[in-house]
Design a protein around this nucleic acid. Structure first.
Length: 545
RNA sequence: CGGGGAGUAGCCAAGCGGUAAGGCGCCCGGCUCUGAACCGGGAACGCGGUGGUUCGAAUCCACCCUCCCCCGCCA
């Protein structure tokens, strides 16, 4: 991993002997699926610890049963593994409920916490504002015994939700709102996905997180910058709860991408309102969506490594992400031919009934991928875009009278354009030159363009799914108009053909379709008799249309 | 005078007092059976601003400007 400020800090701690073994953790709340932004944290935590010979836990921050679900736990585990990370321990904040409860009693005994009967509304009103200090709760000075007893009753579920909370006794006049007697425990008669109905009180993030870190022996607790002003509270909890381990929190800037929804709430909304086809819709930046789209773990990891780590707000150009998939798939994916929008071509001087199998390398830059054969015959399909009636100056594909090369085959010349009743191009009549066969070493004349094609009697029907951003510009802010900015063209479905050699494509099989881009067989829609390819990313093009 | 952060080329981002890495993107040329890839080359910054310290500052000091976060019994 390239140099960054967190790595420098850890490096210093290791060198000074302060940190014999680096321990980090990735702490998702199981209330949604992981997305590309989480991958940044994932990579940071796992790769950094690994670099220093340390370990990383996967810890679910499951302290709010109202929002969490087992489904998310499974999905998150799968995504973390898919990215290629192995956790040292699988942990749950809920595993520590008992210890957290005991530490809370310790806080009460030390006079550092109290049970407050104020309503949520009153607590808000007495918290003060950014510029006005808060007011102390009338329950702030209850005795230790009374607090202990009330807290016990809270735990037993003897009060209604919201009737009471346990608060830290810190400083209602602190300029840092987080220190104004923050709530540590709230009452919730809810069924927890792991502890069932064993608990009626649940710890808040600010209390549970530092304790979870300390219990696990985490040395460096990495989180995003919005938690920066929670750090004094984090330290307070660790100190006042007298935890033997003293983890340190460090904050980094989260990843932002243009035209990308990375708010869990919004992703959830898109899924529940069926704007998309589930959490793994290929248009989503979720890891499961990217996986289904055809992105690879390596591409995502290399991307995360390349964007670096700092504390400044930033928006990373999405072309960077695209660059890293292209780079990863370049040598891995076989390069085959697919015609997305077919135009029929009859090679009029190629004998009817004749055909031949041509040899084609699967990846000219990676011989290990071997070769395959491609059928050539009298009738073929080419791309509609590869023919123009009245081409602009620099167009070197097919047009009346022009000659191009058919990839892996022959030169063909456009002799005649056949039109339908509306005058539109229906098919092309071309001639081929047998002398120009690929691999023959022919050098008699050159041709400017090479186009791809598929023989009509060898073409396997296939569906291609082309994607554009799900939301338009400006849709990443927190305003509620996201649904009004959905891009109606985010998914375009096109029916065309691929070489018959691809009939056996399996889910997630990846190809570079010549001159189109990288495609991946859709895992949900591809069946033995139906081929569906998702376009991962197009090829770059310097051809200005 | 609420508190906490951040400002280095179009976008990320190194640098930590010695005279501006790298990646993405962009432009030009070469090569090419993918207008891809690849290979050359290039443009673009003097480091938010102003003062100051210093032989020398993006790096130190002062002041200023701009942007982001914080008033959930969410995380």
């Amino acid at each position: 991993m390239p140099s960054n400020f967190i790595k420098s800090i850890i490096s210093g701690d290791v060198r000074s002997g302060q940190t014999p073994q680096v321990v980090t953790r990735f702490p998702p709340e199981p209330n949604g699926y992981l997305h590309i932004g989480h991958a940044k944290s994932l990579c940071l935590n796992f790769e950094l610890a690994a670099e220093f010979g340390g370990r990383t836990n996967l810890r679910f921050d499951d302290t709010n049963p109202l929002k969490e679900d087992e489904e998310y736990v499974r999905a998150i585990e799968e995504d973390v593994r898919w990215l290629g990370f192995e956790w040292a321990s699988l942990c749950f904040a809920s595993d520590y409920f008992e210890e957290m409860y005991e530490r809370a009693r310790l806080l009460i005994q030390k006079g550092k916490a109290y049970v407050c009967d104020l309503s949520a509304e009153r607590i808000r009103e007495t918290r003060g504002t950014l510029t006005v200090p808060g007011q102390e709760s009338p329950f702030r000075n209850r005795g230790v015994e009374e607090n202990l007893e009330l807290f016990t009753h809270m735990k037993r579920g003897e009060y209604a939700d919201g009737a009471k909370v346990l608060r830290a006794k810190i400083d209602m006049a602190s300029p840092n709102l987080n220190m104004r007697d923050p709530v540590l425990y709230r009452i919730a008669h809810a069924v927890h996905h792991r502890t069932g109905d064993a608990w009626c009180v649940y710890p808040m993030y600010d209390y549970a997180h530092p304790l979870g870190d300390a219990i696990e022996g985490v040395t460096h607790s990495l989180c995003t910058i919005e938690f920066e002003d929670h750090r004094p509270l984090y330290d307070w909890v660790v100190r006042e709860c007298e935890m033997p381990n003293r983890p340190r929190q460090y904050e980094f800037a989260p990843l932002n991408l243009p035209n990308t929804v990375t708010s869990k709430r919004k992703l959830k909304q898109l899924v529940s309102e069926r704007v998309v086809d589930g959490w793994d819709d290929p248009r989503l930046p979720t890891l499961s969506g990217l996986r289904r789209r055809g992105y690879t773990p390596e591409a995502i990891r290399n991307f995360e490594r390349a964007i670096g780590v700092s504390k400044s707000n930033s928006i990373v150009d999405e072309r960077m992400l695209e660059h890293f998939v292209r780079e990863d798939l370049k040598l891995k994916a076989p390069r085959t031919m697919a015609v997305l929008r077919p135009l029929r071509v009859v090679v009029i001087n190629y004998p009817e009934g004749q055909m031949e199998w041509l040899e084609a390398e699967n990846n000219s830059e990676n011989p290990d991928l071997g070769t395959r054969t491609v059928k050539f015959s009298r009738v073929i399909y080419i791309e509609q875009d590869d023919f123009m009636d009245n081409p602009p100056p620099k167009y070197f594909r097919l047009y009346p009278g022009n000659e191009v090369r058919l990839k892996h085959a022959y030169f063909i010349r456009c002799e005649e354009v056949v039109r339908d009743a509306d005058g539109r191009v229906a098919e092309l009549l071309c001639t081929y030159d047998p002398e120009t066969k690929s691999g023959s070493g022919f050098s008699g004349r050159k041709v400017k363009g090479t186009i791809h094609w598929v023989s009509a009697d060898d073409a396997a029907p296939a569906e291609f799914r082309l994607y554009e951003p799900l939301v338009r510009d400006g849709a990443t802010d927190e305003s509620d108009s996201m649904l009004t900015r959905i891009n109606p063209n985010s998914l375009e479905i096109v029916q065309g053909f691929v070489e018959s050699s691809m009939k056996s494509a399996k889910p997630y099989d990846k190809f570079q379709f010549f001159r189109h881009g990288y495609f991946s067989a859709d895992p949900k829609l591809t069946t033995p008799d139906r081929l569906v390819f998702n376009r991962v990313v197009s090829l770059k093009s310097s051809f200005g249309v």
